[in-house]
């Protein structure tokens, strides 16, 4: 299965579903439709990229329920909520929960397309960030326990001499570990290392 950005349409109304699909088709975006949130959850592969358009009001699981469910995952395509009768509290809740957009039906189709494109872009970006984090984690995991210890001390801002005393080793040993950490983490500068530490929640 190719991982081309796809628009996943979840709506119980067949008319709307097929219209949205046609809209995506008209701008050359691949799309897939689901008649309910449950079916979507059963069939969807989280690794697939693109965006999800979901109707708030559906029998069984609602759009907001689906959003909440997906939020538990590390990564999922951005969600565009569409609604027939949106109200402000509902929109706020949806956006706070991470929806990229909240569009009222009947919607401006261009706005919808813009929103879809923005979502796909964001998905790509999200996906980039996630893969970098994965790289950093992979690098971090390659560090020896001693090196992880030194890494910790370094990002906490301790000097080599202090680290050497704390660890009960010589200062040159600390320097060697530190060089190894920089090398393994592919960090050019200390600030790079600090940013990685932030992503890794070491601080």
């Amino acid at each position: 299965m190719s991982n081309a950005a796809t628009v996943f349409i979840v709506d119980d109304d067949e008319e709307v579903r097929s219209a949205l699909q046609l809209l995506m088709e008209s701008v050359g975006l691949p799309s897939e439709t689901f008649s309910s949130a449950q079916i979507f959850l059963e069939q969807f592969d989280l690794n697939r990229s693109g965006c999800i358009i979901v109707d708030v009001r559906m029998p069984g699981m609602s759009g907001l329920d689906l959003q909440a469910q997906l939020a538990t995952e590390k990564l999922h395509p951005p969600i565009i909520i569409i609604t027939g009768h949106g109200d402000v509290p509902m929109a706020v809740r949806a956006v706070q929960a991470g929806a990229i957009d909240f569009i009222e039906k009947p919607f401006n189709n261009q706005a919808m397309l813009d929103s879809v494109h923005r979502a796909i872009e964001k998905d790509a970006q999200q996906r980039g960030e996630v893969s970098r984090l994965l790289d950093i984690e992979a690098h971090f995991n390659e560090l020896t326990p001693r090196e992880k210890e030194v890494f910790q001390y370094v990002v906490e801002g301790k000097r080599n001499k202090v680290i050497a005393i704390d660890m009960g080793v010589s200062q040159s040993t600390v320097e060697a570990h530190r060089a190894k950490v920089m090398e393994k983490m592919a960090a050019a500068t200390l600030s790079d290392l600090m940013r990685m530490a932030l992503l890794l929640d070491l601080l």
């Binding site: 088709e25 008209s26 050359g28 027939g84 009768h85 039906k105 009947p106 919607f107 189709n109 919808m112």
Partner: peptide, 24 residues
């Protein structure tokens, strides 16, 4: 309103899609 919105949405969207298709 919801019941009316559905076909209206579909109509608008279908029409827009048709235009897109014709243009492209």
């Amino acid at each position: 309103a919801h019941e009316l919105n559905q076909p209206l949405t579909a109509i608008a969207t279908n029409a827009f899609a048709s235009i897109q298709m014709l243009e492209s």
